[in-house]
């Protein structure tokens, strides 16, 4: 068995922490895991992707086009940008949230209409307002873990104790917030 998850978004949205929780959970079940991150220039508000590849034995830390089983999109235009990384039968978890890019806010291009609808026309998608849920929990920054919670519902590895993994991965003062964010995200798409 080999599976891969691609997390896409904008530098600074917290994709790396999300991937870390995922990876720690997979390791706790004895999976071989490789994860690739982006550092340096593209972190400064640019488009970023983090990939997690796991199974009984995996070699490559990166996947290519048409190879991801699950996509978690922190921003809806980024879902469209990386859509060709998803397998045709892959599943996307999409934050119904738009962030302007330098190009659009400078008026050099229009932010595209219909990103979510385009994804839905091609893939099985779970679309929800993770940003809104995070804000209602009192801290917009936990949006990443809200998305993570939703992703675990799709991943279907329910024998992993994600609450415990979150406790072990995030700083102590954010454990409670992130555990609530996890459940809020998970319930948002299982309902």
């Amino acid at each position: 068995m080999k599976k891969s998850v691609i997390l896409v978004g904008v530098g600074g949205q917290g994709a790396i922490l999300t991937a870390k929780i995922l990876v720690n959970g997979l390791i706790s079940k004895g999976y071989d895991v490789k994860m690739s991150e982006v550092h340096g220039m593209s972190q400064r508000g640019g488009s970023v992707s983090t990939q997690v590849h796991f199974g009984d034995k995996v070699y490559s830390p990166v996947i290519g086009k048409g190879a991801a089983d699950i996509m978690v999109a922190f921003e809806k235009m980024e879902a469209v940008r990386y859509a060709d990384f998803l397998k045709p039968d892959g599943i996307a978890v999409i934050n119904d949230y738009a962030l302007q890019s330098a190009t659009t806010s400078a008026g050099l291009a229009e932010y595209p209409e219909g990103c979510v609808e385009a994804m839905q026309s091609a893939f099985k998608c779970h679309v929800f307002d993770a940003a809104g849920i995070a804000a209602s929990l009192g801290n917009p920054k936990c949006m990443n873990v809200v998305l993570f919670g939703a992703m675990t519902a799709v991943l279907g590895m329910d024998d992993i104790d994600w609450e415990k993994i979150i406790r072990e991965t995030v700083p102590e003062k954010f454990v409670d917030l992130n555990q609530r964010a996890y459940w809020a995200g998970r319930n948002a798409i299982s309902e």
Partner: peptide, 15 residues
């Protein structure tokens, strides 16, 4: 690779 084409294109998001 088997990829699906979308009717919408993302615009660039440089750092």
């Amino acid at each position: 690779p088997e990829v699906k084409e979308l009717p919408v294109k993302a615009v660039s998001r440089p750092p």
